[in-house]
């Protein structure tokens, strides 16, 4: 049986499948592993970041710092490896430690200074972007045997498509993320926080630890997304990935997660990413459409899904009210 709370996810999946079918009917070439492989690779960094955003939104929060942290990460890694000659693995470890600490400290502020997540992460957004500018305002190219090896690594699908290291990383993050959300106590606590923080606290959920964990996770995944982005573009640029946090929020909401928290699935966010990628791919295939159409379609989808969520909440409330009347 499908829970009403998972209905938006089912709807998103149905929309994706229908849309893909429609695309394939118009452009039969879109049904290929090549398209699929590219779609995954092109959206790998966004997908990784969106997993972090899913946890944040499930808990009833928001993280606006994601795009800036990705830019900071990419500039930081590019400078370390490109200019200073540090081993990329060391640079990756260092930047993940930084971004995780950064996220955790935003969580600390949110929890212990009672600063709304919107404000705390807005400050984080400016801070990370500023730190990126501080390192370099130029695009920093990056080249290193290790990085070349990672970039060159892929599995070949039948049909010529490539599953690149970045796409694999994203898939792993989604699978692990889904397990953490659905099958661990931490995940259950995240849903509990999103439902009602006061109740959750009275039920013994370690609110402080969970909040900090959520934002630390989002920071870590932003750092990981930044690494994927660096590998994807072979460079670091502090002006890049402006507004990626908004794309991530869009993917999360289109994937059926309630923007007010408490209900949603990590798998839904994956569908949200696929839908966004599909729109972009369609526009490339069509050739005559402006790329702005991506934004317009995403905007329409967002509206649709928010209305759908309201309708589901309204419907289940009404059903509950009817149930009460029957009991009385």
């Amino acid at each position: 049986m499908i829970h009403t709370r998972n209905l938006p996810f089912v709807a998103a999946l149905a929309i994706f499948l229908l849309a893909y079918l429609a695309c394939v009917l118009q452009f039969p070439n879109m049904l290929s592993t090549r398209v699929l492989g590219n779609l995954l690779t092109d959206n790998a960094f966004l997908g990784i970041a969106a997993v972090g955003m899913t946890f944040v939104i499930l808990s009833g929060g928001i993280d606006l710092s994601i795009g800036s942290v990705i830019a900071f990460t990419s500039v930081f890694v590019a400078s370390m490896v490109g200019s200073l000659g540090v081993n990329p693995i060391v640079a990756f470890a260092a930047v993940l430690a930084i971004s995780t600490t950064f996220g955790a400290s935003m969580g600390l502020m949110i929890r212990f200074l009672s600063i709304p997540p919107f404000v705390a992460t807005l400050a984080g957004m400016f801070l990370a972007r500023g730190a990126a500018y501080l390192i370099s305002t130029q695009s920093v190219p990056i080249s290193h045997p290790v990085i070349d090896a990672i970039q060159g690594f892929y599995f070949r699908f039948p049909g010529g498509g490539r599953l690149t290291a970045m796409a694999m990383l994203m898939l792993v993050v989604f699978v692990v993320g889904a397990f953490v959300a659905g099958r661990t106590r931490f995940g259950a606590n995240v849903y509990a926080l999103g439902g009602n923080p006061q109740s959750a606290e009275l039920m013994g959920v370690p609110v402080g630890r969970t909040t900090i964990g959520i934002y630390a996770l989002s920071g870590f995944l932003s750092g990981l997304a930044g690494i994927a982005y660096t590998l994807y573009t072979s460079s670091g640029y502090s002006l890049a990935t402006v507004g990626v946090e908004l794309d991530a929020i869009a993917a999360v909401v289109i994937g059926g997660t309630l923007l007010t928290g408490g209900a949603g699935l990590v798998a839904g966010t994956f569908v949200g990413i696929l839908i966004q990628g599909l729109i972009q791919t369609y526009i490339v295939f069509d050739g005559s459409l402006s790329s702005w159409w991506t934004k317009i379609v995403i905007g329409i989808l967002l509206f649709t899904f928010i209305v759908l969520q309201r309708a589901i909440v309204w419907y289940s409330d009404r059903r509950l009210a009817e149930g009460r009347l029957k009991e009385a």
Partner: peptide, 24 residues
């Protein structure tokens, strides 16, 4: 009191879910 967005079982065992191999 409890959390309306979770199931009855999740409410009963929040914070002390039975685990196997580290997973709920």
């Amino acid at each position: 009191n409890l959390l309306e967005n979770l199931t009855v079982a999740e409410n009963l065992f929040l914070g002390r879910q039975p685990r196997r191999f580290g997973l709920v």
